[in-house]
Nucleic acid binder design. Structure first.
Length: 491
DNA sequence: TTTTGGGG
């Protein structure tokens, strides 16, 4: 044992430490930023963080800590916690000071809660029982706690030039996002963990990629399945009413046991260096090996801003609207219930009463049948009835619409008299014998779907009324369906 | 032993 250790450790302030490039130092710091450990391309794990103290609080000191095993990595519970490092090597990187720790070079750490008045027992001490805790140590921890509690420690969180809200994400560029983990799903078949994240804002409507074109000829069904697979309705019940929930899928990440540690539902995180892409017309975040997951305290300014903005959205009729629909809202459809509050589709899907009525602001993504010629069918539906039966009264509209807003997708049926009203009094008929009617219908449906000669379809925002019902009284929730009613083309 | 990765 060296003289120094026998006398107790001599801790540098961070201001002193950054001047000791090339030397091995001990120091205490308050954790101002922390990224989950992740595997390196080499043999070790790496964990990165920024620590601050009174002598050096902006931008703080970056610390890299390498170790062969996950349980040897710092597992910071909360920003503002106090960490003590022994035997870190001071370096510079890109003209900024940096401290390097390596378990293989006997670097070590202990972690304390940041709460003022908490005890002086570390909540993490990977080196076991042999750690020093003198009166001077308790003094340093106490002083750092007092200082941190009166000081904003998150000055770095949420201020990077890469930071984006979900409403502003775009494809093909790397960015950072502060968001809440709402749901973590294990896709056991692919051995993938998908996190579902939310920040209270609405993703912009995304175009369908040419590769998204359905194989079964029913694009609406594909779109609906894409959304259902992502988040089951039962899980959705626990989500906030508004705002887009995006899946975050790993790409090129190492297999199971050497994956980075993932946050759990309820955590706020800062996702760093992630990208977005569009699949089946839905944005999804992509987590690469170069991405990082930083923790955020609920008290962080960025988190508070998200939560406050969301509370405002919830309370305001205007702000509840999808953030990408025109203001003031316009709609080529009108409803007879304009006084009824607008519901997001996630609210519709998760409403506790199975039979209920809603008014929504949505986009119509697809119809089924996709050909207007097939919008009506014979009322008795039997094969014995000739398909070309000329009698109008024997036909009924049966059309399934795939509706979308920033919160969800759902199928709603346009049926019978509700459909006749919807299409402006156009009666049900054998449409294969009603060329004029078909032309009128097709023109309306194309407008509704935003079909254009150039480029992909871009459906406009429209208001519509939905009512929910069930097919089987014994299993109302499982057999819940939706119908469009009280809605028609304007003019 | 001094990598690995290091705010792009």
């Amino acid at each position: 044992m060296s003289n120094r250790e026998r006398e107790g450790y001599n801790y540098a302030t961070l201001a002193e430490a950054v001047k000791l490039v090339g030397e091995t130092v001990h120091f205490y710091g308050v954790v101002a930023a922390y990224e989950q450990p992740k595997p390196t391309r080499g043999r070790d794990y790496l964990c990165t963080m920024t620590v601050i103290d009174t002598s050096y609080n902006s931008p703080g000191l970056r610390v890299l800590f390498f170790a062969p095993r996950l349980d040897q990595m710092p597992r910071v519970k909360d920003l503002g916690d106090v960490i003590r490092f022994h035997r870190l090597q001071m370096k510079t990187h890109s003209d900024a000071p940096q401290a390097n720790g390596n378990e293989r070079s006997r670097s070590s750490f202990v972690l304390f809660r940041g709460c003022e008045g908490d005890d002086y027992v570390p909540y993490q001490n990977p080196s076991g029982t042999s750690f020093t805790m003198e009166a001077s140590d308790r003094n340093i921890v106490g002083l750092l706690r007092t200082w941190a509690s009166s000081h904003s420690i998150d000055t770095l969180a949420g201020t990077s030039k890469y930071m984006k809200q979900i409403k502003d994400v775009a494809v093909d560029s790397y960015c950072d996002v502060c968001c809440k983990i709402l749901f973590v799903s294990e896709q056991s078949a692919e051995n993938k963990v998908i996190m579902h994240v939310w920040d209270g804002t609405d993703a912009s409507p995304a175009c369908l990629n040419p590769s998204d074109h359905s194989e079964n000829g029913d694009p609406g069904q594909d779109l609906w399945i894409a959304k259902q697979v992502a988040v089951p309705v039962d899980v959705m019940r626990g989500f906030p009413a508004l705002g887009t929930v995006l899946p975050l899928v790993p790409d090129g990440m190492p297999e199971n046991d050497s994956r980075p540690l993932l946050p759990v539902a309820g955590d706020w995180v800062k996702l760093r260096n992630i990208r977005f892409r569009v699949r089946k017309g839905l944005y999804e975040g992509v987590l690469y090996p170069c991405s990082k997951i930083g923790i955020l305290s609920p008290s962080t300014q960025t988190v508070q801003n998200c939560e406050r903005a969301y509370e405002e959205r919830l309370a305001s009729e205007a702000l509840r609207l999808p953030q990408w629909c025109p203001q003031p809202p316009q709609s080529m459809l009108v409803t007879g219930y304009d006084h009824v509050k607008l519901s997001a589709l996630r609210e519709v899907l998760t409403y506790p009463e199975v039979t209920y009525k809603f008014r929504c602001m949505v986009r119509v993504m697809a119809t089924w049948p996709s050909d207007v010629l097939d919008f009506c069918e014979p009322t008795d539906g039997s094969a014995a009835q000739p398909i070309d039966h000329p009698d109008q009264g024997d036909f009924v509209f049966v059309v399934r619409l795939t509706l979308e807003d920033p919160t969800a997708r759902l199928h709603a049926f346009l049926y019978g008299e509700d459909a006749v009203e919807f299409f402006g009094g156009c009666p049900a008929a054998n449409l294969r014998r009603q060329g004029d009617t078909v032309v009128v219908l097709k023109r309306k449906v194309d407008r509704l779907l935003g079909v254009s000669e150039h480029g992909p379809p871009n459906p406009p925002w429209v208001t519509c009324c939905l009512k929910s019902y069930y097919l089987d009284k014994a299993r109302p929730r499982e057999t819940r369906r939706y119908r469009v009613f009280g809605t028609r083309f304007a003019g």
